[in-house]
Amino acid sequence: MAEKPIIDERRCRGCGLCVSVCHLHGLVLVGKVVVVVETVQCDWCADCELVCPNGAIACPFEIVLLQN
C-alpha cells in the first residue's frame, strides 16, 4: 500500500486548504477533519503540509542510503 500523509486530527481545524491544493484529489473533508483517500497514490509533493496553517499534516521522509 502506498505511503500516505499523516493527519493530526487534534490540530486539524477543517479549513480545507490542503484539500484545495492536492493535485491528486487525495484529501477530503469528513465533518471538520480532513482524511486521506484510501486509494490515492500520493506522490509526496508535500503541498498539503506546506499550506496547512495548523501543522496538522505531515509528509515525513525516510532517509536511506542507495543500496548498490
Binding site: 505531515a58 525516510e62 532517509i63 536511506v64
Partner: peptide
C-alpha cells in the same frame, strides 16, 4: 546523521522538522 540502517528503521522527518533542526525556514529546506 539520520540515515536509516535499513529501510523502515530510521527516524522519519518532515521538511518542517528539518527546518527546525537547521535553524531555517521550511522554504529554504525545500
Amino acid at each position: 546523521e539520520n540515515v536509516a540502517g535499513e529501510i523502515g528503521s530510521g527516524p522519519r522527518m518532515t521538511q518542517q522538522e528539518m527546518a527546525a533542526m537547521a535553524g531555517t525556514a521550511r522554504e529554504v529546506v525545500g
